[in-house]
Design a protein around this nucleic acid. Structure first.
Length: 373
RNA sequence: GCACAGGUGGGUGAGUGGUUAAAGCCAACAGACUGUAAAUCUGUCCCUCUCAGGAGGUACGGAGGUUCGAAUCCUCCCCUGUGCA
């Protein structure tokens, strides 16, 4: 079984459907919680299931360093290792090329890293990133790219884009030659490799990157290199213009975005998949997303607030606890604060996407209307 | 009663003559967070003004004193801890 997108309803550029994967169907547009180290920080797998998470994201670089691919292989692959039967997407480590800027050196061959854990030296190349991801066994694996920093001048953006394109071709070659290797002796997995569009903040480069990535040929395409410090308006402009150059019958994945408003917007613009650490990280830092906007639960004003965090929210946190209690848990540094805050934020993100899907499907035939998630 | 040790800003705790409105940590308050080096990071944190660079006023148990200058030295008093009677 291979990964593909089954589009069932459209509204303007937006589409609703199912992403078919070896580990089940995923309702799209979908938000994918981030579980970098084979764990969505703060919540257990059964809670994720209860929340309705159908796919989550994990990370090549981090799992490669610890516990190491070999361990994951021997434990039967990432799904078995972390006891998650639903879909998984692994990022290639490309983002770490960007975020670990102090600890790495990029060459055409690949990227030399010094481990942020113990300083040891490692080398990640397109081939290595594929080898690791095949070993981890996620349903969708990402091409090893260079996430271009911002700001970057025209020359730098082009060079970075060319590097990503070159690596994309190498990723595909290696992946095609090795994807049927099932290291732990299980069944053939039907993994899919997605390409990543780069090109900085230049619309023309983005178009060229999209076209040339499509020429290489992948079952899905991601828009990378955004939300790297540029103004939101610029992000939006680049996303919208890039979307126009991506195939309409294949999954489109916008990487690393965004706030609830943003993911709703982009889903309506035709993005099928998104991931972001924001809901989980912000939760741990006391920032909660609600139907009435952001709530910084650490603020003194909530100390004796009996009301639910978000009266309009159906999550079990909002059903059961007061703002006063959540504020107290946070102020007291209780582990439960992280758990509850994360549960709520993830619920809010997932509910946001459910609303968008409903909106697309409900008005499938009509062309009018406007959504306010 | 005697002998030591000690009393510093909301807490803890540096500082033993000037560069000290007084380190660091904690608490408190506010802000940031977008393919996770993130239970992290940043700012504020005595009072009053401010053209936002600063200006002034109070402050290191209390009261005096020495000194150009004191949280720092001296005297007396108050209080705390420990030991001995």
């Amino acid at each position: 079984m291979s990964v593909r997108l089954q589009i069932e309803a459209t509204r303007g550029a937006a589409r609703a459907g199912k992403l078919i994967t070896p580990h089940g169907e995923v309702e799209t547009p979908v938000f994918m919680p981030v579980g970098t180290l084979a764990s969505v920080k703060g919540v257990s797998q059964d809670v994720l299931e209860e929340l309705g998470v159908e796919i989550l994201l994990s990370n090549t670089y981090h799992l490669y360093l610890r516990p190491g691919v070999e361990t994951v292989r021997r434990m039967g692959g990432l799904h078995r290792f972390m006891s998650w039967d639903r879909a998984i997407l692994t990022d290639s480590g490309g983002f770490q090329v960007f975020s670990l800027t102090e600890l790495r050196k990029v060459s055409e061959e690949g990227v030399a890293f010094r481990s942020h854990l113990d300083g040891s030296s490692h080398f990640l190349s397109p081939e290595k990133a594929m080898e690791v991801q095949i070993g981890l066994g996620a349903d969708i694996v990402m091409a090893f790219d260079e996430c271009t920093e911002h700001p970057a001048d025209a020359q730098r953006s082009r060079a970075s884009m060319e590097l990503t394109l070159c690596w994309a071709a190498r990723c595909k070659k290696y992946f095609e030659e090795h994807k049927y290797e099932v290291p732990w002796g299980g069944v053939q997995q039907g993994q899919a490799l997605f390409g990543i569009v780069q090109g900085g903040m230049d619309r023309e480069l983005r178009r060229e990157s999209a076209e040339r990535t499509i020429d290489i040929g992948f079952p899905g395409y991601a828009i990378g290199g955004l939300s790297v410090g540029e103004p939101r308006e610029l992000t939006r402009e680049i996303v919208l213009s890039t979307l126009e150059h991506l195939p309409s019958d294949q999954p489109r994945y916008l990487m690393g975005v965004g706030t609830p408003d943003e993911i709703a917007q982009y889903a309506q613009a035709g993005v099928d998949m998104m991931d972001c650490v924001l809901p989980t990280r912000a939760a741990r830092h006391g920032l909660l997303f609600t139907s009435e906007g952001k709530v910084s639960i650490k603020q003194a004003r909530y100390a004796q607030d009996e009301s639910a965090l978000d009266p309009a929210c159906e999550c079990r946190v909002c059903q059961r606890y007061s703002r006063a209690y959540l504020r107290h848990l946070y102020a007291s540094n209780e582990l439960l604060a992280q758990v509850l805050n994360t549960v709520h934020n993830l619920h809010f993100y997932l509910a946001t996407m459910r609303t968008v899907r409903t909106w697309i499907r409900a008005s499938h035939a009509s062309s009018a209307g406007d959504l306010r998630p």
